[in-house]
Design a protein around this nucleic acid. Sequence first.
DNA 1: AACCAGGACGTGA
DNA 2: TCACGTCATGGT
Length: 250
Amino acid sequence: MGKTRAKARKEGTALLALYRRLLRTYGPQGWWPLLALHGRGTNPTKTGSIRGYHPGDYSYPKTERQRFEVCAGAILTQNTAWPNVERALVRLERSRLIDPKKIMRVEEARLRRLIRPAGYFNQKARKLKAFARFYLSLKGKVPSREQLLGVWGVGPETADSILLYAYGEPEFVADAYTKMVLSGMWLVAADASYEEVKRFCVARLPRDVQVYQELHALLVEHAKRLKEHKRSSRRPPIPPPHEKGSLRKE
DNA sequence: AACCAGGACGTGA
DNA sequence: TCACGTCATGGT
């Protein structure tokens, strides 16, 4: 079933229109949050955890240490709320362990204990070890997406997060929140795959790191607010039919 | 007190 | 390829 030109054009601009509206409404989000920025500036997000954001400043990471911190955070935040990740990062930093060489050297049992608040600590300790080895093997070079996906514990979203926020490479992060918002607007199917959602966005956005970073962060903020709104408002006594099935692709 | 969070992996159809 | 179970802590 072919789309009409009008519909195709509308869908082509809907994402950019959404971006502008979210940016005007919420302002720049200042992702990716960094430990070193704790205590400085203010956090513009209401649902965001604490500090560490740097709204409007896209010049991070500024150091190799911050680059690795973003990578570690990307792994630690897998299916985990950011405040828990932050605790884990603070504990790592207290032991001066946000450093690939030290991650390599540290005993895995100790690593597990330190990152405990982030959950899945057995898997994530192993993932950090595997990533530290890979990171050092790069010798400062920018990894390809394929290389990243070859590392145990790095999947599509983590790879894109690392490329976009740690290396400033134009890879859009199409996470669960992105799909939630876009499928809610009928722009993508509810059962679309990660790569499908990513392709949809990339095809309709300028290939611009700042736009990718900001839109992703804005979509997360927006999705959190939508959920918050849903939670506080009463549910209909009778669940609507085909809650999932109505969003199938045609 | 279930339910969920900024996923990825291993397994069996 | 794809659905499903698993991994684990902390907030609501």
